[in-house]
Design a protein around this nucleic acid. Structure first.
Lengths: 348, 348
DNA sequence: TGTTAGCACTCGTTTTGTTAGAGTGCTAAT
DNA sequence: ATTAGCACTCTAACAAAACGAGTGCTAACA
């Protein structure tokens, strides 16, 4: 179902959308008349608007109000916009700078904060999931008291700790031996490549510490893929208060709750949809398209970031339907580029 | 300036406070008259109330409304309450259970969530600061590309990672040697005990890697005391929407912002005040006593938790002035006891 | 035939006015 | 010392009225 608009209707539609974005209030024919470069009387505009309304692109909230764009109207606008600017991006990373950080979490939180501040919307960012990341090495140390510290380092210098409770106290040599065993067998593999085959080979090779090897592998699995407890960080939640259409009544409460309760949006939107295939990097959900009940009045723009070598996660910008899609998309593209850069280290 | 009340006045004051806590609305003489066990007519109550008002313990928001407690009134009430129950605590840890966790951050976040849900208020929790914690050991590993991974483990099994950029590539032996040097010199010390003396001794002992040792020590310092960037976690922020007196107008926005912008409350209230000396564990800030502008309508109850061996941080419960102080104090005490328990591991 | 001016009409918002009720303080009686 | 009674005050809630923004339609116009 393709929608075709003559040029004038399109101009009017855009004018309505832009005006509505600025004010957040329904916009009437008189306003448009003054706003357009072409000189048209309010009456003419009204006729055109009636048509646009019939097409389902705009509505009036009540009889004697101006028009506001429908989801469908926005969708059209956004699609045009996206197809127009395609990829003139990636050159504009002068924008803002990220302090060099070593810890991924900090980087993510900084990024979220930055985006929230830059856009005046709310930002949500998921930690990366590592299924495609290669293990670099594992470092075992004894902590005394029958406890073992397993430090798992994977490509991109992602470091995770794990304390595990092995029943017995291991000797220094035993630990060294285990260390060697683990690294020689696992180093360079992704989590998915650690097959039962390899595991049983390792157990055979060692013979003695079968139980412990199991525990260690569990720990590795947990720290590397996080077992779908990928952390999610939010920033700029208070920004929603800038948009009355979101905070009217007790909607504010619901929204803030939905943001604190990160799961739904995080899982469904940010990770969601087919993970496979290289979708287009940037995705826009408008109003009803957002699969979270309490966010039907919002739009969400998501992007996939990559921290080198298949480690990827998602960023989402959450704002009112009248958000500045253009800016958000730009900013997101720039941010993606930067995240890429941070971990693409100068190979000395 | 001691305030003394005859028994009847006190009873009336308490009745007002309790009623106000339940309803959140000003309470009038008639209500109290019915509420009290002793039979007194509204008129009598009114007279007493006039007295209480003169003493600054209650006020009427406007001429023809009931009375509500002032900060001063609350203070009196809370003080009485605290002194009465002193420490009948620590026995009631049946309450709620914490899943055993290895990572401190997770424990803290879980705790915050739990408290928020249990109390219907907002919880803020600071990560611990480690100045008094002893170093257990340091584990260096090479990450290639001139990068070194330093894992710092301190008492209570707190693990921190740090990636550092040493210019050169170190040999496996060099790293082992450094490892040994660091551990033999630093193990068992607190951050404050690492003096210049020790440092120069180490440098002398090694001679070669002076520059690297410096970097490592920086990393240790940073990971161990966090350089006042102790993380702060918040949970239950949306709870404030349950209390109209906090969310009236756009106050909600300010409050939520203040909560997201963790610094002020975090630093001032939670860590703040003389860190020294063993203050009483639980502290209550009422209304104006809260040193954050946007929280003048709130009360904050803070407690200090200890994760064994001098690792301590603070928990704060933030709610309306009419919060259920009694319950909050109880819950906090119980929580503290549990956190203690979690890290007081069975010495096998 | 497309555009525009004019006008009657609609409907939400704001203002103003009215009322009801809760609560007080005071006085006088018990 | 307590209480009943009463006049008074002030707010919250509701209703009515005025306002105004915006529309759709019709008729005139280029």
């Amino acid at each position: 179902m393709e929608i075709e608009l003559d040029e004038r209707k399109e101009k009017i539609l855009y004018a309505i959308i832009q005006n509505y974005q600025e004010t957040g209030e329904p916009v009437g024919s008189r306003t448009i008349s003054k706003y357009l470069d072409v000189k048209l009387s309010p009456a003419t505009i009204r006729n055109e608007m009636a048509d646009l309304e019939e097409m389902g692109l705009i509505v009036q909230p009540h009889t004697s109000a101006g028009r506001i764009p429908t989801d469908k109207g926005y969708r059209l606008y956004v699609d045009r916009m996206l197809s127009q600017k395609q990829l003139p991006s990636t050159e504009r990373d002068a924008g803002f700078l990220i302090r060099r950080v070593d810890r991924v979490e900090e980087l993510l939180m900084q990024m979220a904060k930055l985006l929230a501040m830059n856009t005046s919307y709310t930002t949500m960012i998921t930690g990366p999931h590592y299924r495609k990341t290669k293990l670099k090495f594992i470092q075992l140390s004894s902590m005394g008291g029958g406890k073992l510290l397993a430090v798992v380092v994977s490509e991109g210098n992602i470091v995770k700790n794990n304390i595990l409770d092995v029943g017995e106290e291991l000797s220094q040599e035993g630990i060294l031996q285990l260390n060697l065993l683990l690294n020689s067998n696992l180093s360079g593999l992704t989590i998915d490549e650690i097959t039962l085959d390899i595991i049983s080979r390792m157990k055979a090779e060692d013979g003695e510490h079968v139980e412990i090897i199991n525990k260690i592998l569990d720990a590795v699995a947990e720290s590397i893929q996080g077992d779908d407890k990928v952390p999610i960080y939010t920033s700029g939640a208070p920004n929603i208060f800038k948009y009355p259409e979101l905070t009217g009544g007790d909607r504010a409460s619901e929204l803030i709750s939905a943001l604190e309760e990160k799961t739904p949006l995080g899982r469904i939107v940010l990770n969601g949809e087919g993970e496979d295939g290289d979708k287009k990097e940037i995705q826009v959900y408008i109003g009803d398209e957002v699969p979270v009940e309490s966010m039907k009045d919002c739009s969400v723009v998501t992007a996939t970031y990559e921290l080198g070598s298949g480690v990827q996660g998602k960023i989402g910008i959450i704002g009112p339907k009248r958000m500045d899609y253009e800016k958000v998309v730009e900013v997101l593209q720039s941010a993606m580029a930067q995240m890429d850069a941070v971990f693409k280290e100068v190979p000395k």
